[in-house]
């Protein structure tokens, strides 16, 4: 499998490490540090296992050290999109604000 790092270009799988689902969100820590146990359990342990498009985090560890959000079809390994995780995260927090 190959991934096109938005910074480094097309590279073989050996340059990347896989982390998993990019859709799970770390529950926000409110100022009182109150916690929602179920939200944390979901975040740490529960994952969907879709047959089809999957949004997932990869790390270009031996390349530019960027975390990437990859949209991949789990049935065919077809990669539809690769974006810098920092950009996706910035949009997310910008959208939430």
């Amino acid at each position: 499998m190959r991934l096109t790092c938005p910074f480094c270009g097309s590279r073989g799988l050996e340059e990347f490490t896989y982390r998993g689902d990019a859709l799970v969100r770390r529950p926000a820590a409110d100022t009182s540090l109150q916690t929602d146990a179920q939200a944390w359990t979901d975040y740490v342990y529960l994952r969907d296992n879709p047959a089809g498009l999957h949004s997932e985090l990869w790390y270009h560890g031996v390349g530019c050290r960027s975390w990437l959000v990859v949209t991949r079809d789990t049935r065919t390994h077809r990669v539809d999109d690769v974006r810098a995780a920092s950009a996706v995260a910035a949009e997310r927090s910008g959208g939430a604000a």
Partner: peptide, 18 residues
Amino acid sequence: AGGVMAHLEFCHQWLWPE
């Protein structure tokens, strides 16, 4: 050593990009 570096980059780029 390598894993902690990846972890710090993850926290920075994905959890707290600000």
